[in-house]
Design a protein around this nucleic acid. Structure first.
Lengths: 169, 169
DNA sequence: TATTGTTATACTCTATAACTATA
DNA sequence: TATAGTTATAGAGTATAACAATA
């Protein structure tokens, strides 16, 4: 699959595949020296693309993060979700409301402290979570289109260090 | 400057300095495998902290990005700013409005195409831009507190590659 | 007709504060 | 008094669509 002159077709080149268009992006010259600026731009771009990819499932990125959290800590309280998702209590309430409406998770009273709920992911929740994984991979491959495998590993490792969860430490 | 037992004082340790609190963050286990999730979290955290740091100057991160852009491409049209900042036209209008109110930049009619303006940074705009630099460095050092110098360079290099402006390519 | 800029508007995300029910 | 959860509301940021002036 190539052009008449032998070049691979444009749509398979990293530049064409990238979520950041053809290089160089116009603003690069002014701000490519700022890690802060780049983190912010790349982060918001990734969020936006992932949001769009999740649209057919009726979910947004924070739903996926919450379902992942629940899968690893099933029965977590809403307070756990607040700290676990770096969110706030009112956002978590509406998040769990949506889960209950969609049948992806449910509240169960904690009999030992009736102020709190345990939030439990359902079988349907797990199934939906599995179906988001391919979408995440597809978006990630577009966002990181210009990176080699080694660079991708390096990025993941450094980001883990940034938040303090480097599994190698 | 150290504790009696020779350890450096706590406030200077990477964990205490980091904008991400003490490791491990609760949500790490569930999602630290996702570069997408980490990019989004780190990016939004960086933006938020930088916003707060800029508050005394009456600016927000996008103002700084725009001033940087204007410094490198003075007289750019608002359309240039739209593509240059990866923004949209209505946002750029209000951005330039604010610059004019604050005396940081000004519109000048383009005599060769009277539909468009050239946006010109003022001396005050340059002065303010200089004063944001120390703030950006301070925030960056908190966000990247856990990274070594080599890791910081690696992160910057990889982020440049992501957006396609790696100066070494 | 197409392009630059402007205005008005709406939508998402997040933050805050007041409230309830339990402890 | 303090805590878990809920509700209402407001703000920032962004996106969209209709419009005016100019090409």
């Amino acid at each position: 699959m190539s052009e008449p002159d032998g070049r691979p077709v444009a749509t398979t080149s990293p530049d064409e595949m990238s979520a950041f268009g053809s290089a160089p992006t116009p603003w690069s010259a002014a701000s490519a020296g700022s890690t802060l600026f780049l983190l912010s731009k790349v982060g918001s771009r990734a969020t936006k693309l992932y949001s769009e990819a999740l649209e057919p499932l009726g979910l947004r990125p924070r739903h996926v993060a919450a379902l992942r959290f629940l899968e690893s800590r099933d029965g977590a309280s809403q307070k756990d979700l607040v700290s676990g998702l770096w969110s706030d209590s009112s956002s978590v309430v509406s998040l769990v409301d949506e889960f209950e409406r969609q049948g992806l998770a449910e509240r169960r009273r904690n009999p030992r402290d009736r102020r709190s709920y345990g939030v439990h992911i359902t079988a349907e929740g797990r199934r939906v979570l599995r179906s988001t994984e391919a979408l995440a991979e597809e978006v990630e491959s577009r966002v990181l289109a210009r990176l080699s495998g080694a660079q991708r590993e390096s990025l993941l490792r450094v980001l883990r260090s940034v938040i303090g969860t480097d599994p190698e430490v």
